[in-house]
């Protein structure tokens, strides 16, 4: 199937009439996924967004329910978002991150209705990466610039148009509803060529990483990584797989709500007990937790690494603490090679 670029704004308008449409929007020098009212707001001249689109399904601050207490009793209103959504132009790495997050919010022990309702009502229209960034290492994390995992449709930029591939039934249904035309052979060939020439230049060798992490909890190597770390959440909040949260009640007089907020293992407050005791006393333990959670605990729990190689933590770190170097150091030398 095919979408001509000049027809895209109109198509997004049409989608926006039925769905909440989220697409990359320019904000200064960077892009963010924002809800758009008309197609002209979207700008697909992006490498990837500054902050991942995970917040559309798992908002940074999310009201779970609100309550009020009156003379007649207590009333409670649950806030489950059932609106239909389309994320248009999600990158393959971010789509993959949602598959990873599914493990957390939908497993034998827990089914999170807030996330899962949004998830089932959301269509993911992917945009393949013809030109991955220098900080991308998705191919080292079981993904790729044209990876279809988790997507419903995948678009490939061929210059004047996007070649569209349906990945799931949801995607096929959407394509049918939009009455997309068929791509001709030369357009299909152009998409195939784009796929061939897309190169992820950076590789992170993870062979043996998990085995090292299984045994190195007390290794002196953890003494050094955190020394320059500021302990902010630029890495975790810009990570598409970080999913830790904190639940607070926000109340005024007899009215209030329960809110779920993103939290970060890099904050001292993250593990501070009510007693005042903190099991993770310094940056060392906090940094170790972040790496362990992504590359060991998540693997133990769900048999997958909680990193998709999007490179956002590398770009956003205020002191250039590069996770690729941390992983290389943990594995030993030569773990990372720039082709």
């Amino acid at each position: 199937m095919i979408i001509a670029k000049n027809a895209l704004p109109g198509l997004l308008d049409k989608l926006a009439a039925e769905y909440e449409v989220y697409a990359p929007v320019k904000q200064g020098a960077y892009s963010l996924y924002k809800q758009i009212c008309n197609g002209a707001e979207a700008d697909f001249g992006y490498v990837n967004s500054k902050i991942p689109p995970k917040g559309i399904l798992f908002p940074q601050s999310e009201k779970l329910y609100s309550y009020s207490v009156t003379g007649e009793g207590t009333s409670l209103e649950e806030c489950v978002d059932t609106r239909k959504k389309v994320i248009f132009g999600i990158r393959p790495c971010d789509a993959k991150s949602l598959l990873l997050m599914d493990n957390v919010f939908n497993n034998d022990k827990f089914q999170d209705p807030y996330y899962l309702t949004r998830r089932s009502n959301t269509i993911l229209v992917g945009m393949a990466c013809n030109d991955p960034a220098g900080t991308c290492f998705c191919t080292s994390m079981d993904g790729g610039p044209f990876d279809q995992s988790g997507l419903d449709l995948l678009l490939t930029d061929i210059g004047e148009a996007y070649v569209v591939e349906a990945v799931s039934q949801k995607g096929k249904d959407l394509a049918a509803a939009l009455a997309l035309g068929a791509a001709d052979d030369s357009q299909k060939a152009a998409a195939a060529e784009a796929r061939e020439s897309a190169e992820v230049a950076c590789a992170v060798n993870t062979v043996g990483l998990k085995a090292r992490l299984d045994v190195n909890f007390y290794d002196p190597i953890w003494e050094k990584f955190h020394e320059k770390c500021l302990g902010c959440a630029a890495c975790t909040y810009s990570c598409p797989t970080c999913h830790c949260f904190d639940i607070v009640d926000e109340a005024k007089d007899c009215n209030g709500c329960r809110v779920r907020n993103w939290d970060s293992c890099m904050f001292p407050l993250f593990t501070l007990h009510g007693s005042g005791h903190n099991p993770r006393t310094s940056g060392k333990e906090r940094m170790r937790q972040r790496i362990m959670h992504k590359f060991k605990y998540f693997v133990d729990n769900f048999n997958a690494t909680a990193c998709v190689g999007c490179g956002r933590c590398i770009k956003n770190c205020p002191v250039n603490l590069d996770v690729r170097e941390v992983l290389a150091d943990i594995r030993g030398s030569e773990a990372r090679s720039d082709k």
């Binding site: 904000q27 940074q60 902010c232 959440a233 909040y237 904050f267």
Partner: peptide, 12 residues
């Protein structure tokens, strides 16, 4: 409105 409360400013 752009702030994500990562507190990088404070910590830097």
């Amino acid at each position: 409105s752009k702030c994500i409360r990562c507190y990088a400013c404070r910590n830097a």
